[in-house]
Design a protein around this nucleic acid. Structure first.
Length: 436
RNA sequence: GUGGCUGUAGCUCAGUCGGUUAGAGCACCUGGUUGUGGUCCAGGGGGUCGGGGGUUCGAAUCCCCUCAGCCACCCCA
């Protein structure tokens, strides 16, 4: 019986695991320097947490878990936000505000695997709770941009597309969309670019939009407003009174204050399926639309209260590793060698020296050096150097008869080929010194 | 869940008018014995040709089913 990894999952062999740790390291470092603290939760929750709080799309893709002898149903986490909301709700009164948390969970969704979409993936989450003002939305976006920039991406490669559910709702309302048609209209807006004109028109008519209203809806769905434009210009193009745009105006101001307006644009066609978003929503896309969304987020001011906590405004972002790595690959930004580097490969060039290898290796390791040796019995230096080179060692440490009599070892720099004799007592410090 | 494409060694592939023990490159292992590297040379392990059924004297090759992968729809990380 031969087994294979379940559909849509990945095995992380050493090279893939090294890449994964590298990415997680970037996520973690950027989170911390932006003031976020790391949290983690269980990989499964009670089913109800998701059926009640996530959108249908996600609920339909849940992996459910049952236990022998119990009726209780759990689900493997398809997203982290419900867990986060639960954690905050549980200790809300004890937590100093604002709460700025990040996490790097693995998530599972029973989706049909395809380019950029797997059934298990990693997701970097950042969330800010306790601040209702757009400064928090802006800082979430800033932190995300900080990460993109850290990875070598630039505003000419990726774009943060920003929308606002309240603003869109008000626009639609003014166009004559009844409240009970609002969800359907959001969906229509979301899919505008993928629908043929006549289908779009047909569906809009069904909702009661035609003539001028239809044109306006089309404009809302398709027009992009660069964030780098002055607010007065943008404001003039949105068919709403100034009082309905205060939140967006404030966000605009803060994005510019953070200096990231060249990374962003307003795109009111961004709606997002998740049920709990309330205000600002945003997605990050490769600029030519080459891949799926790299990240998405938004404001969810009611969620924490809805899971039993106090009213707590919140805004957050999630970024998956799958699309991100595709984009980095497309741009040639994947790092080549992220395996842990080997500092020293210890070689015995004489049989009499072989017994000293473990002790020397132990000494190097105690000093924090990454040291290895050969498990082969040969003392053929050529073969052993080859082995050292295959491990990409920085240096080979060669023990021979001279080591025993004069108590020196030969250190060969495998990059330059330069070889020098070093007193045994100074070996550790010499290797540590050459490390940087 | 629906559709399209694809499954031959760990990887990339060759091999099909059906015909003897199924091949290459890379990777991996061993050796080239008294010592200086990723080269070279020689040798080796590894495949129920995705799986099952059928047609046939004979199937990697033809037919059916199934599984898996990729891509697309849906939606999104």
């Amino acid at each position: 019986m031969k087994f294979q990894a379940p559909k849509g999952t990945r095995d992380f062999y050493p090279a893939e695991m090294a890449w994964r740790r590298w990415l997680e390291g970037k996520w973690r470092a950027v989170s911390i320097r932006n003031g976020f603290e790391e949290v983690e939760g269980p990989i499964f929750e009670t089913l109800e947490l998701y059926t009640a709080k996530s959108g249908d799309e996600i609920v339909n893709q849940l992996f459910q878990v049952t236990r022998e002898g119990s009726d209780k149903i759990h689900a493997i986490r398809p997203e982290f936000t419900p867990t986060l909301a639960r954690m905050v709700a549980e200790k809300a009164n004890a937590l100093p505000k604002p709460i700025k948390w990040f996490s790097i969970p693995n998530l599972c969704r029973g989706e049909q695997p395809q380019r950029g979409r797997l059934r298990e993936f990693l997701q970097w989450n950042i969330d800010m709770m306790g601040i209702a003002e757009p400064i928090a939305d802006a800082e979430c976006i800033f932190t995300t941009v900080d990460l993109l920039s850290e990875l070598g991406l630039a505003p000419n490669m990726v774009k943060v597309k920003i929308s606002h559910r309240d603003v869109v709702r008000r626009i639609l309302s003014r166009l004559g969309v009844a409240d009970d048609h609002m969800v359907a209209t959001f969906e229509l807006l979301d899919r505008r670019e993928k629908l043929p004109d006549d289908v779009f028109r047909e569906r809009a008519n069904a909702i009661g939009l035609d003539g001028t209203a239809l044109e306006r809806l089309d404009q809302v769905a398709l027009v992009r407003y660069p964030t780098s434009e002055p607010w007065d210009q943008i404001k003039a193009r949105i068919p709403l009174p100034e009082s309905d745009l205060e939140d967006l105006a404030d966000l605009h101001d803060k994005l510019r204050a953070f200096g990231i307006d060249d990374w962003c644009e307003y795109d009111l066609g961004i709606v997002r399926g998740l049920a709990y978003y309330t205000g600002t929503v945003f997605e990050i896309h490769e600029i030519t639309g080459a891949e799926r969304a790299m990240a998405g987020g938004g404001r969810y001011d009611q969620l924490i209260e809805s899971v039993g906590g106090p009213p707590t405004p919140a805004v957050g972002m999630g970024m998956g590793d799958v699309v991100l790595s595709l984009v980095l690959q497309d741009k040639g930004l994947l790092p080549h060698d992220v395996m842990p580097q080997l500092d020293a490969f210890v070689i015995a060039a004489a049989e009499a020296a072989q017994s000293r290898v473990p002790d020397l290796v132990a000494t190097l390791r105690a000093a924090g050096l990454h040291a290895r040796f050969s498990y082969r019995s040969t003392t053929n230096v050529g073969k052993l150097l080859k082995e050292a080179a295959q491990h990409h060692a920085r240096a080979a440490v060669i023990l021979d008869d001279n080591t025993l009599s004069a108590d020196t070892v030969a250190v060969k720099d495998l990059a330059t080929g330069e070889q020098t004799d070093v007193p045994s007592a100074e070996l550790t410090s010499a290797l540590l010194h050459s490390r940087r």
